[in-house]
Amino acid sequence: MSSAPLLAVADDPPVSLWRDAWGRLIRNRLAVAGLVMVLVLAFAAAFGPMLTPYDFLSQNLDARNAGPSLVHLFGTDDLGRDVFSRVLYGTRTAFVVAIVVTALAVTIGVTLGATAGFFGGLFDRIIMWFTDMTMSVPNLLLVVVINASLKAPLSQWMETQYLATLNPFFRETIWIDFLLVFGSMALIAWPPYARLVRAQVLSIRSRPYITAARALGLTNRIILTRYVVPNAIGPLIVSVSAGLGTAMVLESAFSFLGVGVNPPTPSWGNMISDGLRVWQHYPHLLAVPAIVLGLATVAFSFLGDGLNDALNPRGSK
């Protein structure tokens, strides 16, 4: 028997690629800053509305358009509503929309991309043709068309249902808002995920360790779950992190244009839109939501970049 090999790494604890990536992530200052900001925003979205002294809808017409003060941290708007509470609630809206939309988009994208990559052939070509088609339609146009064509008939239907059943659920038109926003945004957000996952699966499928697993007689199911998926997931995490930020911006953009979440539900987008009308007199009404939106975007982008460097160390710089 040949002599025992020297072990350069013998005394360090074993390091999995995940732990290694985590180590790289927390050494990256920008990524940590991004991560902290995302966590703070997420906390605000989850608990903020419960902690504020004001309801986001409660109006105080005696204190309209007040500047920031100790009573109203970020001041009040033209109806005397507390801007701080509204921004917190807008954070919740942004997170709910971003998470649901990204989850939907990832589900559609991963399913289509993985099947296209794994089975290939005609199936692959049809799915990819469909993906390219979707990508080539201008996003805004698609959302506006969906909203314009579906909103009225849906509201109508809800109203008929309410009158017929008197179920209070049907009176809440906010569900239509969310359904349309989620649906239309997911519809434009999935193609990049499909492309990414397909490329990942294609590249992993040709790695020698997949052939090695086949040579051991392992079944397709084991190969998919233990070999393909864990190795494909890194880039997907990066993409999802960036996607959450993008979804928040999209939501704000649509709300700003009036095709997203509708008042009185607060959204950064419709707050910016309201603030824009009066910014010369009451700049805080525009500044506060705009700054928060900017911070959120920057946070997700730092985190996404950090995750990318951490999970794909060779591709960085």
Partner: peptide, 15 residues
């Protein structure tokens, strides 16, 4: 059984 050429890619990096 089979053993491949490239020792860097014949093992699943996550296992």
């Amino acid at each position: 059984q089979i053993v491949f050429q490239d020792p860097y890619s014949t093992l699943n990096p996550r296992m």
